[in-house]
């Protein structure tokens, strides 16, 4: 991928072992700023494990994960950081395969909690907050504006005071993305954001992600089975199978890559494949969606 953007995340020789099982085996790739990098692969290929390593939920067995912030600071070595510090210091945000909203709290509160660290700093150990000092009130107003911006973006302004658990499924998915964006990340990791969405909602999701890529100075890492999302919005696709990378390229290149097709369909010979399958990955992909 001849990319003109700057590299954001460099994954080198990432290996994650669970006992004798190599969930991820010697994976190296690079994600770029202002680009959407998709990670695809059959179920159990190790995609979510890569995310869990990136966001500190697992400690990788081997490998280096270095994130270079866009403001050209020193790179953060994610494999050495605690889970919450990856989000706080390195500014990597993520969503989850099974949505993890604060369901009892309101939509707006979800977005405010995401701005915790900034608000905590302004509240000076809650003292400034308890006294209602201007320093804290200004920060709170500013955070509220950010929350409103994202509410508007995901079209949930009218439901801002609903408890998040009462939202329809598609809205919950969008809210989780907005919540991740409220942490002001440099890298956004989305774990199957289109799972369970209908075709219309998938299109809305595409628009949202393209908007984020256009307006925000961040890179997006995307795990997805829905090829209508992956093929339309990705700049760059990485294909995993059994923990190893089997292909890396543009959507057009991946679409016709024989190794990828074999991994998805398990065909013995490429020539056996009917043309409608080699032409489009969709039939294989939909079987992978839950």
């Amino acid at each position: 991928m001849a990319s003109d953007s700057l590299p954001l995340l460099a994954v080198e020789h990432l290996t994650m072992r669970f006992g004798g099982l190599f969930a991820v085996n010697d994976l190296s790739f690079t994600a770029y700023q202002k680009e959407i990098t998709a990670i695809i692969g059959p179920n159990g290929a190790g995609k979510t494990t890569v995310f869990n390593c990136l966001t500190g939920f697992y400690k990788p067995s081997v490998g280096r994960l270095s994130l270079t912030p866009p403001d050209d600071g020193a790179p953060h070595l994610l494999e050495r950081m605690d889970g919450f510090r990856i989000a706080k210091v390195a500014k990597v945000a993520r969503t989850f395969q099974n949505i993890r909203l604060f369901t009892g709290m309101s939509v707006l509160e979800n977005l405010m909690v995401a701005q915790h660290n900034k608000l905590m700093r302004a509240s000076v150990y809650s003292v400034a907050g308890l006294l209602g000092l201007r320093r804290f009130r200004n920060q709170e107003r500013q955070s509220l504006e950010i929350a409103k911006y994202w509410l508007d973006k995901i079209d949930l302004s009218d439901q801002a005071d609903w408890s998040a658990g009462n939202l329809p499924y598609g809205s919950q998915r969008r809210l989780e993305i907005a919540r991740a964006m409220c942490t002001e990340p440099v890298l956004l990791c989305l774990d199957e954001p289109a799972a369970g969405l209908n075709p219309r909602e998938s299109l809305q999701l595409n628009d949202l992600l393209l908007d984020i890529r256009r307006d925000q100075n961040i890179g997006i890492l995307l795990i997805e089975h829905d090829m209508s999302v992956v093929m339309n919005i990705s700049d760059h696709i990485i294909v995993l199978d059994h923990g190893a990378m089997i292909a890396d390229g543009t959507p057009v290149a991946i679409r016709s890559d024989p190794t990828v097709i074999r991994a998805y369909l398990g065909a013995a010979d490429d020539e056996d494949l009917p043309p409608e399958v080699t032409g489009d990955l969709r039939p294989a992909a939909t079987s992978g969606v839950r």
Partner: peptide, 22 residues
């Protein structure tokens, strides 16, 4: 205050809290 919201968020989902840098 943010700390109070963080308490409630922690009650709802600790994993999500960590992913938000709390």
């Amino acid at each position: 205050l943010p700390i109070g919201r963080a308490w409630e968020a922690l009650r709802e989902d600790e994993t999500a809290c960590r992913s938000l840098g709390i």
